[in-house]
């Protein structure tokens, strides 16, 4: 079932962030939500993820089993990369598999370091592997390539595309090139 957003509105105090926003997001495909900063992309994503409640409007078709890369990494700071992935997938995923994934996106040398000792870009990649390996039905990605250099960004994009085939992926970005590279449907806001 596709995801339907009908007349979603959301305000924070006096500030209206979303007004009667409607869209259809196809199940099992990548959809990029694009727009300038402050247009309400993250708010919309958070509403779909169930982290915010809309003031008005309806959403249907969101699967129960969700995964996300948040705007902030939201990692367990004193644990290493593998533990941070394990927190969401438990023992369903083997350590070797987690290591392979982390190696794949260039974190092979930092598997055991507490994440609070990793750079911003490395932390971002840990949160991406965590979201991908959680193996849920829908993936919310909020500016997932923030803080990544050009080459890393390309390899991480390939990684996400490879491991999320057939899943519903909703990505928020302000960068049109990123949206195009993900080869998905495009929803423009603002």
């Amino acid at each position: 079932m596709d995801i339907r957003l009908d007349n979603i509105s959301k305000s924070f105090g006096d500030k209206k962030v979303l007004t009667n926003f409607s869209a259809v997001i196809k199940k099992g495909k990548v959809t990029c939500i694009m727009g300038p900063s402050g247009c309400g992309k993250t708010t919309l994503l958070n509403i779909m993820a169930g982290l915010l409640t809309p003031d008005e409007g309806n959403i249907t078709g969101i699967p129960e089993r969700k995964s996300a890369v948040f705007q902030e990494e939201r990692l367990c700071e004193t644990f290493g990369a593998i533990s941070n992935v394990r927190i969401v997938c438990g023992k369903n995923v083997k350590i070797e598999t987690i290591k392979e994934h982390l190696n794949r996106i260039g974190l092979g040398d930092s598997l055991n370091k507490p994440v609070n000792r990793l750079s911003g870009g490395m932390r971002r990649r840990v949160s991406i592997v965590r979201a991908v390996l959680a193996d849920r039905d829908i993936l919310f990605l909020d500016e997932p390539f923030k803080g990544l250099d050009k080459d890393t960004k390309i390899s991480v994009m390939e990684y996400i595309k490879e491991y999320t085939k057939g899943k519903t992926v909703i990505m928020v970005t302000h960068d049109k090139k990123e949206a195009e590279a993900m080869e998905g449907d495009l929803i423009e806001m603002g």
Partner: peptide, 9 residues
């Protein structure tokens, strides 16, 4: 935010 992450997952 960590608790929110735990809820979502």
């Amino acid at each position: 935010q960590l608790l929110e992450m735990a809820d979502l997952f």
